[in-house]
């Protein structure tokens, strides 16, 4: 491989994690998280680099990274809005919230605003059914949402 994209810190972090797992392949999920933290999303070259580091075929990295919605295989905006639309949230008005964000940001679900500030996605169950509807904004949970609360949150973002 040519020049490495991932930092020294990434590799140092991985070396620390190795003893924690029974197999080297098990490093894949934390490696993807760590890499995404560095690069914001997971471009193909990063997947290749992780595959080479762990010793698995890059296709296998792609397989795993595409399975989990928390790994971004396309670039996302500064604020990644993920609204749960599974059954509990749906019954409590999640679909309307999605539409509200679509209108407000003038994008479709799955798209990023032109200024690269917001990306909107539907999310599968966030495990917050007791406090539905819920959404994730980057790594934080926002629960018991309604139209007003959602507006306030979005407007508070720089």
């Amino acid at each position: 491989m040519a020049s490495k994209i991932l930092s020294q810190k990434f590799y140092a972090e991985m070396e620390k994690l190795i003893p924690r797992y029974p197999t080297r392949v098990a490093l894949l999920l934390p490696a993807l998280h760590q890499a995404q933290e560095e690069t914001g999303w997971l471009p193909p070259e990063v997947l290749e680099e992780i595959g080479a580091y762990i010793g698995i075929h890059p296709a296998q990295v792609r397989e795993v990274a595409s399975f989990y919605t928390m790994y971004n295989l396309t670039p996302v905006g500064k604020y990644h809005v993920k609204i749960c639309t599974n059954v509990a949230c749906c019954l409590r008005g999640a679909n309307e919230l999605v539409e509200q964000v679509e209108r407000k940001l003038n994008i479709q679900c799955g798209e990023t605003t032109r200024d690269r500030k917001f990306t909107l996605m539907e999310e599968e169950c966030l495990g917050a059914c007791g406090t539905a509807p819920a959404m994730m904004l980057n790594d934080d949970y926002y629960e018991n949402l309604d139209s007003k609360k959602l507006d306030q949150i979005l407007e508070s973002l720089e």
């Binding site: 193909p44 698995i56 075929h57 890059p58 296709a59 296998q60 792609r62 397989e63 595409s66 399975f67």
Partner: peptide, 22 residues
Amino acid sequence: NIHEMVAVRRGNNTEITTIDGR
């Protein structure tokens, strides 16, 4: 002994493929 054929995405959208059609 080569894990080149994989299933990307999941559920109804699962697709059997090599990376980007390699």
